[in-house]
Design a protein around this nucleic acid. Structure first.
Lengths: 211, 211
DNA sequence: GTCTATACCATGATAGAC
DNA sequence: GTCTATCATGGTATAGAC
């Protein structure tokens, strides 16, 4: 049944892809249905056979994008051996989030990038979904903290925001080929767990260059 | 001479304030001149006495925003005793960046938020300015690293991006009164320098988990 | 300097042919 | 299912009165 693809389904998918890509690039308001239609290989009027309005199209793009990261991070946890360390749990979550965001997923990056500038009405419809994703991260971090893998004297909510910010902002600067997603994740985790400071007097030398 | 304020100057300033605020909230394309004019207490047509076009107005908002953070961070460095530690240098820079961004400065936050979705032509005009700001941070971090305050085996460019991301993203979630800017800066610096991990008995593998 | 009025254009959306 | 044609709206920008 999943392999059953009517012509309608195919067009729908093409439209969504085109919309995600364009929304991501130009933002919501600056994106015209004419552009989306052209990118999808059809005329603007034809979009309305598949979607009731620009906002409906937008909402589906946002929904898909958030669902994808959520699932990716969730699966990253499930795939892990039950006895994994909390650092590893966090590490794979970071990598899953980054990978979804940066590896040709216009849906998730569109969501991250434009959510703040989308009509309020639309935002309201997606708050629950965003909260659910935040809750997933909250759980991961809280468990780590409770079992002694993270310092207790920090505001985990704040840490989560800073962490998400560091990761999400990558959509603004990441360029495929220049740095691997793995390397970004490694640096993020190093900062998160160990920091990159060096104790004042001791000249600790550890000569491994992270490429 | 600075206290010399013609009526024109006052209106100009009011328009810019209104524009920064609205751009920040709604994004560039979704903001209409009608809105800006109303917020500035005049009619849309009147804006053209002060600015040649919507884009010209936008460019000035972007310019002011970037100039303000740049100056704030630069001054944070100059105000510091000459013998300050590199950690302190970085700490005050972080705080200056955050403070400018979050303390009722719609200009800087507008710049941060909408830059990626502004007409290419406009972006081009501001790349040099952004590079200069990035260069300021690059210098601060590099000096710290060279003098042994930061690990040598990290990609400082990557660290800078992650750091800026964590800070910049705060415009998306910060709410005055809930957390102090100082607290955010402290958490950021703790992560950056020490990390928030606690040594776990078993593995001492730092970053690079090569499969 | 700011207003009103309006030209001009682009967009989201609809209707009906094919 | 997609096209063409078209409407209605709302926006940027201009012109001229005050």
């Amino acid at each position: 049944m999943t392999s059953e693809q009517s012509k309608s389904d195919i067009s729908r998918a093409r439209i969504l892809d085109a919309a995600a890509k364009t929304f991501r690039q130009k933002g919501y308001a600056a994106t015209t249905l004419i552009e989306i239609a052209r990118a999808a290989g059809m005329q603007a009027g034809s979009l309305y056979y598949h979607f009731g309005s620009k906002d409906e199209l937008l909402e589906e793009v946002l929904d898909i994008g958030m669902r994808r990261v959520h699932e990716a991070v969730e699966e990253s946890q499930e795939r892990l051996p039950a006895d994994s360390s909390h650092r590893d749990r966090i590490r794979v979550a970071v990598e899953a989030h980054l990978a979804t965001l940066l590896k040709h997923d216009d849906y998730t990056s569109a969501n991250i990038r434009i959510f703040g500038q989308v009509p309020e009405e639309v935002q309201k419809h997606h708050i629950r979904q965003r909260d659910a994703y935040a809750e997933l991260w909250r759980r991961i971090l809280t468990k780590a903290q409770k079992s002694g893998a993270l310092r207790r004297d920090v505001d985990l909510g704040l840490v989560r925001m800073l962490l998400m910010g560091a990761l999400n902002w990558s959509v603004e600067w990441y360029q495929p080929g220049r740095t691997s997603i793995r390397t970004i994740a490694d640096h993020m985790c190093l900062m998160l767990f160990n920091g990159i400071g060096i104790e004042e007097p001791a000249r600790s030398r550890e000569n491994e260059t992270v490429a």
